[in-house]
Amino acid sequence: MFIRNHQGPQYREFIAAIARKKNARGYLEVGVRDGGTLAGIGCEAIGVDPEFKIRYDILANKNAVHLYSKTSDEFFRDHDPRVILGRSPDVIFLDGLHQFEYLLRDFINSERIAHRDSLILLDDCLPINAEMTERVYNQAGRRDRENAPSWTGDVWKMIPILKTYRPDLHITLVDTRPTGTVCLTNLDPSSTVLRDRYYQILQDYILEEMDEAGIEQFYASNPVASGDVILHEFNASLFVGP
């Protein structure tokens, strides 16, 4: 069985450090869960989750936190983060439901309210084995018992989708533990390409599955950057794609 164990920083530490280095003044997080990632952010923030289970001090180092107990679709339909924060978020972290159509919608809605220098971060798009990419979580059916509790779903599909439909984006894959972070810059809030082709994309990708050969090819085709190097030598050029 092919297993790729990422060796970089823990993803929550990476996100907190990137937000500090960008001097973020506004932050949006979809998929807050226990608040562990949100707690590391040091600026005014918005958190969205239909079922909060907060266990961390999410108010630490912030002047305000705005929580919305609803799905991301409902949030973006009913609210404008630019109005809540008084500005577009500088950093956006997307960690919602692990099925690619949901993450694709979250990205579309997030880019629309971002500014060109915003950074959008996608979680769980770099699975360490093929088993965890199943669309329906089946922990009991896993052969790799050590990693059976982890489920990335099929959000890995965001990488080929964005490379195909949005070659203008700068896409950086980062080796954060446990299942990677995708950093997206050179955003275009005016772009409607993904929104216009949303249903065609779903039709093209919904039946694609990741098998053992597929995950090896995935990493052969998608170089992964060192999170430690990015944090140590942070500058805009590190997020520029080929």
Rank of each mutant, 00 (worst) to 15 (best):
D211A: 10
Y11I: 09
D106V: 03
D34H: 13
G227I: 05
Y205I: 05
D188C: 11
V224L: 05
E146Q: 15
I159E: 09
D123W: 04
I108M: 02
E212N: 12
L187M: 06
K62A: 10
I84C: 12
V65F: 00
T164P: 05
R25H: 12
H79M: 13
R112I: 07
T179G: 04
V229C: 06
F100R: 03
T133H: 00
A16E: 02
R55L: 14
L119G: 01
M132C: 08
R197L: 13
D90I: 10
L103G: 02
L207R: 13
K62P: 00
D73W: 04
R195I: 08
L169M: 10
L187A: 02
T192P: 06
P223E: 01
Q200D: 15
C125M: 14
T176D: 05
V32T: 14
L38S: 07
R177N: 09
P242R: 14
Q203K: 15
L169A: 09
L238A: 10
L67E: 00
Q10W: 14
L194Q: 01
R82V: 10
Q139A: 14
A220D: 11
E209H: 09
D154S: 03
E134D: 12
H66L: 11
D228M: 11
G180M: 02
M158T: 02
G47F: 02
V65Q: 00
Q203V: 07
I230F: 00
K21S: 11
R82P: 08
E216K: 15
T172N: 01
A24N: 02
A213P: 04
I113N: 00
I41K: 01
S69F: 07
L207T: 15
K163I: 09
F14T: 04
I92P: 04
P127F: 00
A60F: 13
I54K: 04
G141N: 07
S191T: 14
L119C: 14
Q203A: 15
R25G: 15
A19W: 01
E134L: 12
D168H: 10
T192K: 15
F218A: 05
L207Y: 11
I18H: 00
K22S: 11
R12K: 14
E13Y: 13
P167L: 00
L94I: 03
G96D: 02
I3W: 10
